[in-house]
C-alpha cells in the first residue's frame, strides 16, 4: 500500500462523502422519518446533475441551474408520491417505476448522450475536483460543509413546524396522524418531494465536482444512502439524540463510507469493479446486525414473583 497515494486521496474522499452525505440526508427523510423506502433516488441522483450541467452549458446562471435541478428532483418525488398514494402502488414499486422512467428522461435531458461534460475552466463551478487540495475558499470540502450546514438548519427548522411535525407523526403512526386530522397522503407526497429535491441538489453538486453528468451516476445511490444512514446511526445513536445532530451523523456516515472505500481501494485487495458488490454486502450486514441482536442477544428478562 502506498501511504502517500492514500493520504493524497483522502481529501477527495472527504469531499465526495460530504456531497453524497447531502443525498443520504434525503434518504434519511424518507427511510427514517417517513418510514417509506424510496428507490426513486437512483434516478434522481442523475436527474439533478443532468439538469444542472445541461442548463449551465446552455448559459444559465449557476444558481438558477441549481434551483431547477432541485425542482426537477421534487417533480420526480411528486410522481412517486402520486404512484404511491393516488394510485395505491406499494412505495418500493412506485419508486422503482419512477426510477426506470427517469432513465429515459435523464437521457433526454442529456440530449441523447450517456454523459455531458462541463469544464471547470470555462464555467464558474461551485465545487470541483481540481480544487480539492487547495487551501482556499473554493475548496469543495469547504463549500460542501456550508451546503450541509445550511441544509441541516433548514430541515431542522422545517421538522419543528406544524407541517414538519405532521410529517414525523405520519411516519411514526399513520393511524394516529389521520385521527388528528392529518392528510397522510398529502404529507407522504410532500416528504417524497423534499427528499428527492435534496437528492437532486446533491446530484447537481456531484456532477460539478466530477466535471460531468452521467446517465449511470445514480446507480446504487440508495444503497450508498442507506450505508451512510446506518453507519451514522450505529456510530452516533447513543450521543446524537437531537434531530439536527442525527442529520449530521448521516453526513459523517457518508464521509466514513467514502474514506473506508478509499482505503480499501488503496490496499488493492479489490478492484473498482467489485465496489458495488462489496458495498451491497457491507450494507446487508449492517442492516442485519440490529435484527440478529434482537433475536439472539436480547437481554434476559429476570423473572419475578
Amino acid at each position: 500500500m502506498n501511504i502517500t497515494a492514500l493520504i493524497n486521496s483522502l481529501p477527495g474522499a472527504v469531499a465526495q462523502g460530504l456531497i453524497w452525505g447531502l443525498m443520504a440526508i434525503g434518504v434519511y427523510i424518507t427511510y427514517k422519518v417517513l418510514d417509506l423506502p424510496d428507490l426513486t433516488v437512483d434516478g434522481t441522483m442523475c436527474t439533478g446533475g443532468a439538469v444542472c450541467i445541461v442548463m449551465m452549458t446552455s448559459g444559465y446562471n449557476i444558481w438558477v441551474s441549481l434551483l431547477c435541478a432541485v425542482i426537477a428532483g421534487m417533480l420526480a418525488g411528486l410522481v412517486t408520491g402520486i404512484f404511491h398514494t393516488f394510485m395505491g402502488i406499494p412505495a418500493i414499486l412506485a419508486g422503482i417505476l419512477t426510477q426506470l422512467a427517469l432513465y429515459s428522461i435523464n437521457l433526454r435531458v442529456l440530449g441523447g448522450k450517456a454523459n455531458q461534460a462541463i469544464s471547470v475552466d470555462k464555467y464558474n463551478l461551485l465545487v470541483s475536483l481540481r480544487n480539492v487540495r487547495k487551501a482556499t475558499i473554493e475548496n469543495p470540502i469547504f463549500v460542501s460543509i456550508i451546503f450541509t450546514i445550511v441544509l441541516i438548519a433548514i430541515l431542522y427548522w422545517f421538522f419543528g413546524t406544524e407541517l414538519g411535525c405532521s410529517l414525523r407523526a405520519t411516519g411514526c403512526n399513520a393511524d394516529m396522524a389521520r385521527a388528528q386530522g392529518i392528510n397522510t397522503n398529502f404529507v407522504k407526497v410532500l416528504g417524497l418531494m423534499i427528499s428527492n429535491g435534496v437528492v437532486a441538489l446533491s446530484s447537481a453538486l456531484l456532477a460539478q465536482y466530477q466535471g460531468f453528468a452521467d446517465v449511470n451516476m445514480g446507480r446504487g445511490a440508495i444503497v450508498i444512502g442507506l450505508a451512510a444512514v446506518i453507519i451514522g446511526q450505529v456510530l452516533f445513536s447513543k450521543i446524537f439524540r437531537n434531530f439536527a445532530l442525527k442529520l449530521l451523523g448521516v453526513s459523517i456516515g457518508a464521509i466514513i463510507y467514502y474514506l473506508v472505500i478509499q482505503i480499501v481501494l488503496q490496499t488493492q485487495l479489490i478492484q473498482t469493479d467489485d465496489l458495488k458488490l462489496l458495498t451491497a454486502l457491507v450494507v446487508a450486514i449492517f442492516l442485519a446486525v440490529p435484527f440478529w441482536k434482537a433475536k439472539h442477544f436480547s437481554k434476559k428478562v429476570r423473572k419475578e414473583g
Binding site: F158, G160, T161, E162, L163, C165, S166, A169, M176, A177, Q180, G181, I182
Partner: peptide, 13 residues
C-alpha cells in the same frame, strides 16, 4: 399534534 386537530398546519412552530 392533537391540539391542532382539524386545523391548518403551516410553517408556524
Amino acid at each position: 399534534l392533537a391540539y391542532r386537530r382539524g386545523e391548518h398546519r403551516g410553517l408556524k412552530s
